[in-house]
Amino acid sequence: MRWFWSGWAAGEPMKTSDQLPELDPVIHGKLRLALLSLLLAANEADFTWLRKKTGASDGNVSVQMVKLEEAGYVAMEKRFVGRKPQTLYRITPRGRKALAKYVDALRILLGKAL
């Protein structure tokens, strides 16, 4: 039972040695993964730049950023540059951790698939 309690206590999905790791559904979405990866490298970026780099629509980027924000993976800051409003996004330590975990899971899955 120890595996059960240790996993449960850490808030992680239950898994045995035979089970494949679960991919975080918040990160696994293509656009959300792209946005989070961009923020991982850039640390901080504004909405327009993120939209331009992903090639997605305003609405879609906005919706996906809200999901990432709700999960606590990104933080948003609204400010003015001159008279222009600017929405700035920053990856949080939780988002960083979640992405690292997601990469580990991908690595394991890829290892199993090969």
């Binding site: 696994h28 792209a34 961009l38 490298a41 850039a42 970026a45 730049w49 991908l106 899955l109 890829l110």
Partner: peptide, 20 residues
């Protein structure tokens, strides 16, 4: 799908680095 995700992450991280 996994390979796609890995490639997507790599390209986006490279983009992000170019931006810094």
């Amino acid at each position: 799908e996994i390979v796609q995700r890995v490639e997507l992450m790599e390209s986006m991280i490279a983009e992000g680095r170019r931006f810094t």
